[in-house]
Amino acid sequence: MTRHPVLEARNLRLQFGGVTAADDASLSIAAGERVAIIGPNGAGKTTFVNICTGYLKPQSGSVRFEGREITGVTPREIVRNGIGRSFQLPQLFLDTTVLDNLLLALAAREGIWNTWTPLKRHPRRDEMLDLLEVIGLTETAHQLPRELPEGMRKLVDIAMALALRPRLIFMNEPTSGVSTREKFAIMDVVIRALQHNATTAVFVEHDMEVVSRYADRVAVWSFGRIGLEGTPAEVLNDPDVRRGVVGS
């Protein structure tokens, strides 16, 4: 049975000067899927994520989420539509605690226009403590993000996106900059959190072990478009991919 696509990107095109970052790129994501986007540096992976999350506007093409046109819509509108995003460099509020970061995300979801109840006494505070438990960061709740190692900051960044209860999340290199030992631990936690919220996920990834272990489907980006698509086993055994992307 074919699952209904939650996201459909069609014929996206975007040029920066003489560089074509998206060249007729198309991709469909089905509900519940975990899709990995791989490819060499400069292939247009982050551009695709940036277009789908409203950071960049394509010159042509369209992005539809759950049947609604979201091409060129602002990031906050996209977030309100049910798409979350984490970043290659974690985007956190560094001057406030991990818990407060999540509480602000919760407040954003529930309605930020409250000028009376202190954020720390948010009536649904326990929900964020539960989320911290799911991602294994309960002990860091009262620490500042800058005191945490990169891997934990990435988890907090993902947790902030998940706090909004998105139906689809884009994660840009969730395991970059963390040790080999940490990367599986991080991904186990992330996948657990995704399952907990029944969230569809697209992640840009350079680590093929992570891709083969956690992705349902892999899309190989090449010169601004998908060069190859398939299951991790099919894609990672392809000789061109092994030569051009995996490097062996």
Binding site: T53, T74, P75, R76, E77, V79, R80, G84, R85, Q91, L92, F93, L104, A105, A108, R109, I112, M160, A161, L164
Partner: peptide, 8 residues
């Protein structure tokens, strides 16, 4: 940037 990606 994060604030915008919280929908605010």
């Amino acid at each position: 940037t994060r604030l915008e990606y919280l929908g605010v």
